[in-house]
């Protein structure tokens, strides 16, 4: 059912969903849900929290859809902004403990138990990613992990393309520095 709507724009899906078309809403949710979950997961390192944030984001969008203006912000930009704000709320509300403590229990979905080395690599990389300043972190997630162009990331962050490029370069440099102590293990685990 939702596959039939794959060529329809987000705005059109929103319009249909707002008029009661359940399949349009399902298609819209399927189109963006995984991105929102992964975005929150990269930033928090906790699968349960990431899914909570994705659910809350889509819930808010369901309400917003009734008054959605097609020529305004893009759907994905709206979703990322709301999810980003919810991530910040979670970070502020968290008790002062490392979010990485939860990674092993909540996000191991595709790693075999005997691949301990790879698991450690994930923890090291995630720790470095979460330690980045927020904007560097977001640009790196959007561009590297989620496949958006620098221009698209700039639009989502409401910064110039040049500024986004600069943020991305600094993010990669910071990641290199942070990962350097584990370089041999990481390269071995990632290759």
């Amino acid at each position: 059912m939702a596959d039939d709507l794959s060529d329809i724009t987000d705005d059109e899906l929103v319009r249909r969903a707002a008029s009661g078309d359940q399949s349009a809403w399902a298609a819209l949710a399927d189109r963006h849900l995984a991105s929102v979950v992964s975005f929150a997961w990269y930033r928090l390192g906790d699968r349960v929290e990431a899914e909570d944030i994705a659910q809350e984001t889509l819930l808010r969008f369901a309400k917003k859809a009734l008054t959605w203006e097609p020529d305004g912000a893009k759907v994905r930009t709206w979703l990322y902004r709301v999810a980003g704000n919810l991530v910040i709320d979670r970070q502020r509300a968290r008790k002062p403990h490392s979010p990485l403590e939860d990674i092993e229990d909540t996000s191991i979905i595709d790693i075999q138990p005997h691949l301990d080395g790879k698991l450690d690599a994930r923890r090291v990389v995630h720790k470095a990613l979460i330690a980045l300043p927020a904007r560097q972190q977001v640009v790196l997630i959007l561009v590297y992990y989620q496949g958006y162009t620098v221009k698209e990331a700039a639009e989502m962050l409401a910064v110039s393309e040049h500024a986004a490029e600069s943020l991305l370069a600094r993010a990669r440099k910071s990641m290199r520095t942070a990962l350097e102590p584990n370089r041999e293990d990481l390269i071995g685990a990632g290759s």
Binding site: Q22, A26, L58, I109
Partner: peptide, 25 residues
């Protein structure tokens, strides 16, 4: 290669079901 070590989780079936029923009234 190091960054690729991080692979995000896919949304759980429970989440997908919950979100699908959130359609605007």
């Amino acid at each position: 290669a190091a960054l690729d070590a991080l692979q995000p989780p896919v949304p759980s079936d429970t989440l997908v079901r919950r979100v699908h029923v959130m359609a605007p009234p």
